[in-house]
Design a protein around this nucleic acid. Sequence first.
DNA 1: CATGAATGAGCGTTCATTCAT
DNA 2: TATGAATGAACGCTCATTCAT
Lengths: 208, 208, 208, 208
Amino acid sequence: MEYNEKQVQIIEAAEHLFATKGFEGASVRDIAEAAGVNIAMISYYFGSKEKLMEALFEERTSHVRLRVEALLKDNSLEPFEKVEALVDDYVERILGSQQFHKIIVCEQVINKNPVILKAVLQLKKKNMEVISKLIKDGQQKGVFRKKVDVSLMMATMFGTITQSIIGQDYYRELNGLESLSEKEFQQLLKKKLLAHIKLLFKAILIEI
Amino acid sequence: MEYNEKQVQIIEAAEHLFATKGFEGASVRDIAEAAGVNIAMISYYFGSKEKLMEALFEERTSHVRLRVEALLKDNSLEPFEKVEALVDDYVERILGSQQFHKIIVCEQVINKNPVILKAVLQLKKKNMEVISKLIKDGQQKGVFRKKVDVSLMMATMFGTITQSIIGQDYYRELNGLESLSEKEFQQLLKKKLLAHIKLLFKAILIEI
Amino acid sequence: MEYNEKQVQIIEAAEHLFATKGFEGASVRDIAEAAGVNIAMISYYFGSKEKLMEALFEERTSHVRLRVEALLKDNSLEPFEKVEALVDDYVERILGSQQFHKIIVCEQVINKNPVILKAVLQLKKKNMEVISKLIKDGQQKGVFRKKVDVSLMMATMFGTITQSIIGQDYYRELNGLESLSEKEFQQLLKKKLLAHIKLLFKAILIEI
Amino acid sequence: MEYNEKQVQIIEAAEHLFATKGFEGASVRDIAEAAGVNIAMISYYFGSKEKLMEALFEERTSHVRLRVEALLKDNSLEPFEKVEALVDDYVERILGSQQFHKIIVCEQVINKNPVILKAVLQLKKKNMEVISKLIKDGQQKGVFRKKVDVSLMMATMFGTITQSIIGQDYYRELNGLESLSEKEFQQLLKKKLLAHIKLLFKAILIEI
DNA sequence: CATGAATGAGCGTTCATTCAT
DNA sequence: TATGAATGAACGCTCATTCAT
């Protein structure tokens, strides 16, 4: 789906406001004003507020699906290198779209637009399949543990990232990182998160 | 704060509806109806919808603060045993109040009632202090690593629990656990979560 | 159903505006203003604009049903006297509630609220049954024609009254009755209509 | 006024939708979609929704005016034969354009576009003049009653036809005519209506 | 000549809250 | 103390219409 300039503005404004105020809390008036368009435009372009949310979701996830699969096929990497590449990919992507990630987290708890819920579930399923294959491969090669709970492993990755995003202001203050620019801080956070999650995944996957 | 029967009913109804529909999505009418009281009661007893949320928060967290501190003072336990006890405590508590936990997670992302945000921050700070002490103790005893990022460690615990709660239906289906009763499943989930988090914490804290 | 003062005001305002502007043309804001109440009152008391229409219909027709049946049982009257009494009753009633009658006529053509449509049909059916009995009685007594199309007879009565109501301003002007007071004119119209319809019914029912 | 193909499509769609949903109930979007044209076309071709209604009215009535006058001048017919021819003409025409007739009936009650109202009045006036002459002629020839209320006579004709159109579904069911094709039923209805109205007009016009 | 894009106004409805009782 | 009645404000959405192209 290709969107024109105004549609993109609306989607961006919606992303910001849904992330900040929630779906119910962000009124179409707010969104229209933030996007610098007439209120009627939202219904005109997207049909309804719900459909706008779905469009936002589609827009932000459509390109994602292919990336994970590509990784799997790459035969130049060892099993754990693949896992590390996967973590790199997820952390990079989620930290790069924090607003949207917040929306998805809350959407899974409240509001529960069925279209989105279904799409999220599909995405999760796809993720699980790919990662399960990846892990099975490592198990066959004798590198990974026999028993791995992939769901919990994913929960740890997504959960840790989510909590880091939510608590980043406090994290910054706590570690005296106020002097860093936003960009520098984000890079540091990414570095720390990557090391942390990779350490955890090593513990989960590899017998000591 | 002591609440009478009707007030308790309101708080319980609010907890359920805030967790299900979000703060904005749950109307005072819904809450009043679910609680079996007059609409005006909510403003009458709590002042406003926001104040009701604050009362709910206070009611659900007031007793919590003492428990962590008690743990710290217990001298009969080794450092990592203390960490394990702490994990036991958190997992037990959060899994035992999933509805409320969902509210808090979303509240940190959206709506952002300043009173609650501040209280959550205080709670986090308290947690951090206690755990930092606990870890420092272990470090001095030479059992724990020198460098531990407590924030990330906490993020992993809370994040993993949260993701497990959010994705429990999918987890159940994925692992073919539909035949279990709700209670049995919750117990299994708790067992798995505990083992998983303790494994992670060991990896974080203890050098191999 | 008993209505309080404000509800009655709303129903009356609605009757006037629905008759003047049609159901779609009359906004709840118009009605609320005309009734001197807050806009929200209409949804508050009646649930919706549609339900308000239904309430109006119910309010204006509930007492009607009994009257026709009473007539049938009256044994002191000859068949055609009964028919005349029936015409008296209908003309009296419809001319006495012209606004409402207009609404019903248009409602049968457009908008077609299913609840009302069904109720109108039931009313028609009841009418037809009673009048059919009345006519059958006259036929058995040998006073009325053998073949009478009751539907067309009713169509003539209702149609003539409706057209007279719609065209009353033009009728008044055409016959130079501007000097009459509204009340006097209504009485004259009723007199004329009664004589006219009775003449027609005699032609329909009685062989020359 | 000559209309191009698209304009004709718009007028026909408007006729159908105005008759079905009323003027206010039928949106220009509905009409444009039904006509298979762009929304902007309606304003572009007709100026506004109101003007479209006026164009529809003009289109459907312009050819009518001449027919009644022609009848009057025909000297080959007796007075009551002329009346019968007139009834034939009206019933034929109205039953042949039921949709439009419904619009006009409702338009006289609600919405009240002044242009149309004025035109309807003119049409009525013209009708009345012609029929009055026709009746005066019959009175002079001693065939018709001295006192005839032409307005009520017309009200009976139009009203009976209108009611028959409105209630045709019920009429069909009541008389067990469901097996007839739509065309057959319409022909039967016309036959019945003609006989009925002519009977009534005889009663109105001719002394027994 | 014809239309996609756009809009201000208004729609019916629901909201959290107030207040007289 | 408890509540039914009531309300102003805001909700998401659709309306007829305009206008640049």
